[in-house]
Design a protein around this nucleic acid. Structure first.
Lengths: 154, 154
DNA sequence: GATGGACAGTTGAAACGTCAACTACCTTCC
DNA sequence: GGAAGGTAGTTGACGTTTCAACTGTCCATC
């Protein structure tokens, strides 16, 4: 008779401590960065959209590429881009080579808003993240989350 | 004439890469854990509430302590606890020593749900986080996010 | 023992995210 | 060439979160 479910492998005290520190710390970090961006009427998700578009050729990207790049669901991105379009930060154009496709395109106003928000935002990222820790630990985070991304789906 | 705003100190390529990997990786991690807990009708926030209460003396905690422990706003916690109360997972009692206060208390059903969800959840945390990386990098994350939490408010 | 200020928690409306269903288009393959 | 199945994006309804305003209680000070 084979054992179907084995005893749970709980985290030991130290592992648990790290996990909780991470949960708390990452939440706090997001909170700080959001608070900072709110000055510009943005949240972190919208800011990432602006950055991604600003770096893309012609400052535009397909909706699904963009969704991937900023790790948002397609549906969420549709809603977000609609709001940003109403705010004049982006506009939409249909893609000539694939008529299902839509390009989200950064407007001049969108670019200017990014330019004005970026210095403060980067400063906040530095203060609350990059420079809060040692360079070694920062590098470790790079490796660690790359490894997280590499975990197979199932 | 003093210079009021100095030139922004941008992140270098490597720093930027780590920052983006973190953004992507932490989003993916949350997504995986949420997907896992959805089987039990929970999300990560609710799960953390159950855990916190289960470990508290008498399995109850003041709303504001709880909010702090699970890094949620008070308002959000009020709504969440209301929903969980309707689902029979917690109940509320008014605190005898401070009549402003409210205790959130884990019910037996809530405890049982936690017991049933915990093994799978811990397995998912292991797979997608703890064991995805080296023990050294895991320890580094502990130090790093403790440092993030130690950054002064302003 | 009143008054002002802080603290605990809630409320309701608006903003946002999620989910499943949907349209439109592209691709493959017979 | 047309059916089947996949991909791109949107929609609207629903649930959740946020935000500002609010009630009630505690505490310090006069």
């Amino acid at each position: 008779m084979s054992q179907v479910s084995t005893a749970p492998r709980w985290l030991d005290a130290e592992q648990q401590q790290v996990w909780r520190t991470y949960l708390l710390g990452s939440a706090r970090l997001a909170e700080r960065l959001d608070a900072d961006l709110r000055t510009f009427g943005l949240d972190l998700g919208e800011y990432e959209i602006l950055v991604t578009l600003s770096e893309a050729p012609e400052r535009r990207a397909r909706m699904s590429e963009l969704a991937e790049a900023v790790h948002q669901s397609r549906s969420r991105l549709t809603h977000t881009i609609t709001r940003m379009e109403n705010a004049g930060l982006v506009d939409r154009a249909s893609c000539p080579t694939d008529r299902r496709g839509v390009w989200a395109h950064l407007t001049d106003d969108g670019f200017r808003l990014l330019e004005s928000a970026a210095p403060r935002h980067v400063e906040a990222v530095r203060r609350n993240f990059v420079e809060a820790m040692t360079a070694e630990d920062y590098a470790a985070i790079g490796r660690a989350f790359a490894a997280v991304l590499a975990v197979p789906a199932d």
